[in-house]
Design a protein around this nucleic acid. Structure first.
Lengths: 187, 187
DNA sequence: GTCTATAAGGGGATAGAC
DNA sequence: GTCTATCCCCTTATAGAC
């Protein structure tokens, strides 16, 4: 009797790997550790993800999907107002930063761990940064200010600073300040 | 005939290691690679640095010394004006960011690579972040504003964002914008 | 005495085989 | 699941060159 493949196995393995990669770093976590934590056999993991690079790519793809969904939700609530959209985007990131499990931006962290690589995970990470930056540029342009370029650069500085505020003395306060900061810039 | 120990050997090894660690990441660079690049024997390196952790600690200590010296120089030119000092500090970082070899803040990069560690290198990195943040807090307090806390948080966001601007579309422009941004905040 | 070169120990990594 | 192959890691030890 052939056993039926358990549904959701791939997702369970990926969720475990994602938590470990994000918390401890991609390089620090070995495949054996993922297998142990997921409580699955080796073949099962390598069946779904033929190599560690594939698993890492899936981890980053999933992080991107989740982030995009949250961003869409935040943007939806902001309606057509580009200023409100920029504030909503910042607030969405601030919400992530306030979580206990926050340990920086998964994509920036990956690029810090593998600065020279140009494989699938690196391309996913770089594309994410490019796309979100473009999103900020777009929204800022729609504000119709004379100093569009300067303003976009400033908002981007705040967003990057917000993502980096892992070691800030008061992370939650930093998140609040960042949102208020962007609010003042767009109003 | 006893050969005299070559002077500057430690410094040469350390400079090689520092360049590699900073450019490619601490985890990605092995001791063998450092030995190869330094063109020395294995025993010589291990004589000066008994373990990789010692070498990494020396790398971060040296980075800190260099950074402190540059910061002192920048602060000296600013005189007693705390606003000018904050701008000078930002400009000093902006200068680093503009260099071709810039690949982020060595201390933040290390903490991203080893988030769970609490050894000598990690303590050096965390102490640096704590000290520079305290420096910003101090200077901001001396501005005598009513919103000292908020202002310090904002400047810190900009500084963190500036350090993170490795992948910005135009790094040099981002650096310029950051300095102008802080200028406006303190004036 | 000082350094290089080489070998080897002990561990852990990815990945494949059964 | 277990077992193995292969590789690279940090580190120590040994042997030889100047």
């Amino acid at each position: 009797m052939a056993r039926i493949a358990a549904p959701g196995t791939r997702e369970r393995i990926l969720a475990t790997a994602a938590r470990l990669f994000y918390t401890e770093g991609v390089r620090a976590v070995g495949m054996a550790q993922v297998i142990d934590a997921a409580g699955c056999g080796k073949n099962l993991l390598y069946g779904h993800f033929p190599s560690k690079s594939d698993l890492v790519a899936a981890y980053l793809e999933q992080a991107r999907s989740g982030r995009d969904a949250d961003a869409r939700r935040a943007l939806g609530a902001a309606g057509d107002d580009p200023g409100a959209a920029l504030v909503a985007l910042t607030a969405e990131i601030a919400g992530r930063v306030r979580r206990r499990a926050f340990r920086g931006c998964a994509f920036r962290n990956y690029l810090t761990e593998f600065p020279a690589d140009d494989d699938a995970p690196a391309r996913i990470a770089r594309r994410y940064l490019k796309d979100t930056r473009a999103q900020v540029d777009d929204l800022t342009a729609r504000l119709g200010r004379a100093d569009t370029c300067e303003l976009a650069d400033r908002i981007w500085l705040i967003i990057e600073g917000l993502y980096a505020s892992t070691g800030a003395p008061n992370v939650s306060r930093a998140a609040t300040v960042a949102v208020r900061f962007v609010e003042e810039l767009v109003n």
